[in-house]
Design a protein around this nucleic acid. Structure first.
Length: 502
RNA sequence: GCCGCAUUCGUCUAGAGGCCCAGGACACAGCCCUCUCAAGGCUGAGAUCAUCGGUUCGAAUCCGAUAUGCGGUACCA
């Protein structure tokens, strides 16, 4: 059996895309499951659209996801790894030139002098005539003199690869089964080298997959129709044909191929929102594949152990953000407290930078908060909403929220004053949740109130909001002095409200 | 237009001829827990398995046609 070698080959013409990440993950899982090699190759031959910034985003995104390659470019100053390099296509130009020369020499490819305008016109004619669009082969058999004449005109030729007519290309796709496509549907002879001499995708992918001894080509379904071109190229190059596995597409809610116009496709954006890689990888793995069991929350190691290419689904899958959020919460809850605090740190710093909090909590303060916030964080970025009020100089409690539904402003003022006295008294001793709750519950009982009403009034006074982590722990985090100050401020506000105001 | 692929609850999926008048999860609703919000537990609603025809004693599962959707059809990847 030949060695299993798979690859992800993104092109740095945009930030790391969700779909690319998913394809990378499936390649990675397959390689790890089978003990094969996972290769990363940058397809940067589209010089007009490729940028270094996108390249960096892709490298960092992959690193963040924990999708580690055995061979491929290094990140930053790190050297590239692997014996089949270089792993950037722009550094492999001589190899494509060599392959093109070989095809030319064997008359499997030829120079074509048709201009983009002529091609365009021909396409329009075919469209109008309702013919399938394909290259008409005008330059397929040019005599040396004709070529010389075009050269003299200053025309810069492209190189076209000859696509045989009426031949059925068949292959057995690991996820889709047997597929047959007639070469007549391929659009005629294929441009493999641009007039500026740079190679095109279908060509480079075949040359590199062969050179890098790729055994399984695992990629998106959008390449299914292009596969015969690659098979033809492999044949012409005289190299073995790899196995293919075409993954289902990730879809927008309207079931079209996921695009940035309709959905958030940048992996970095999900990272910024506070999704954690464990959850993201878990979610992506379950888009188009499942273990066949009822397990849903799976670690990387578990995914690797269970992964199987042949049980990948063939139908496209809509990206479901709600489910991602749920999984993220599952994973956040499983984190060790110190780990979660580390991961939260940049988001807390972001709150400060945005002016939503006035100072940074200490690690000890964060640690104390963990038991009450860990199960309340759908994403890391939601930390500000959850506990930001603790780290602000003051909060502005809305009077309308301050007064519980069953109470009026006067009762609320009375309640808060009584609570303030009780809390102040407690503060002289131990300042802990149990120590606060007990006397306050006694107070409620003595006055014949409902606990919920008093507690809600205190909650709003002290936090400015109606939904918070548990009240007594929250007051503990706030400290006695600031709790009392906020109560005083709320009582003042209520007093202002109580004044008749026609 | 031509070619290809797909089609099970709103969504992700289980299902490889009898175990399925279809199971799980997210979302949704109700209840329990409860100081609010979460989390957790329980319950519920939600799928004529795209349609039609065939094979078979028996089909969500196999075959064919139709419909619909998507993808491809570049000197993009």
């Amino acid at each position: 059996m030949t060695d299993i070698r798979v690859r992800i080959a993104p092109s740095p013409t945009g930030p790391l895309h969700l779909g690319t990440a998913r394809t990378a993950l499936f390649n990675f899982l397959f390689a790890r499951h089978t003990g094969g090699t996972f290769i990363f190759r940058l397809e940067d031959t589209d010089q007009a659209r490729s940028t270094e910034a996108f390249e960096l985003d892709i490298l960092e995104g992959m690193q963040w996801l924990g999708i580690r390659w055995d061979e491929g470019p290094g990140i930053g100053d790190e050297p590239e790894r692997g014996a089949y390099g270089p792993y950037r296509q722009m550094q492999r130009l001589p190899r494509y030139a060599e392959a093109a020369a070989k095809l030319l020499a064997e008359d499997k490819a030829y120079y074509c002098y048709c201009s983009p305008e002529e091609l365009e016109a021909e396409r329009h004619r075919q469209e109008a005539a309702r013919e399938p669009s394909r290259y008409n082969g005008r330059c397929a058999h040019l005599a040396a003199a004709e070529r010389a004449a075009f050269d003299a005109e200053g025309r810069r030729p492209v190189i076209r690869f000859r696509i045989p007519e009426r031949r059925v290309i068949a292959f057995d796709d690991i996820v889709r089964g047997h597929v047959e496509i007639d070469t007549n549907a391929l659009g005629g002879d294929l441009v493999i080298v641009r007039s500026d001499g740079t190679p095109l995708y279908h060509f480079t992918v075949a040359v590199d997959d062969a050179a890098m001894a790729i055994s399984h080509v695992i990629r998106g379904e959008d390449h299914l129709s292009n596969t015969p071109k690659h098979i033809l190229l492999f044949e012409a190059l005289g190299v073995p044909i790899p196995q293919f596995a075409h993954l289902p597409l990730i879809l927008n809610p309207d079931r079209t191929k996921m695009s940035k116009r309709k959905s958030q496709t940048a992996v970095a954006a999900y990272r910024a929102e506070g999704f954690i890689p464990e959850a993201f990888v878990n979610y992506l793995a379950l888009l188009g594949w499942s273990t066949g069991t009822e397990e849903e929350v799976l670690s990387e190691a578990e995914l690797i152990e269970r992964f199987n290419l042949s049980t990948v689904n063939s139908a496209g899958a809509v990206f479901d953000r709600e489910r991602l959020i749920w999984l993220n919460g599952q994973w956040i809850r499983r984190l060790a407290a110190d780990d979660l605090i580390d991961r939260l740190r940049p988001y807390v710093a972001g709150e400060l930078a945005a002016g939503r909090i006035d100072w940074l909590p200490t690690d000890d303060e964060m640690h104390a908060l963990m038991p009450i916030i860990q199960e309340r964080l759908p994403t890391l970025a939601s930390i500000g909403d959850l506990i930001g009020f603790i780290f602000r100089n003051d909060v502005d409690a809305d009077v309308a929220l301050l007064v519980p539904k069953r109470w009026d402003a006067a009762t609320t003022a009375t309640g808060l004053e009584a609570a303030r006295a009780t809390i102040a008294e407690t503060g002289k001793g131990s300042w802990d949740a149990h120590g606060l709750e007990e006397p306050l519950r006694r107070l409620v009982e003595d006055r014949g109130w409902k606990a919920g009403d008093l507690f809600m009034a205190i909650r709003v006074a002290v936090t400015g909001r109606t939904a918070t982590p548990p009240l007594f722990d929250t007051m503990v985090a706030l400290g006695c002095g600031r709790t009392l100050a906020r109560l005083d401020r709320a009582i003042e506000k209520l007093a202002g409200q109580a004044t008749p105001n026609p």
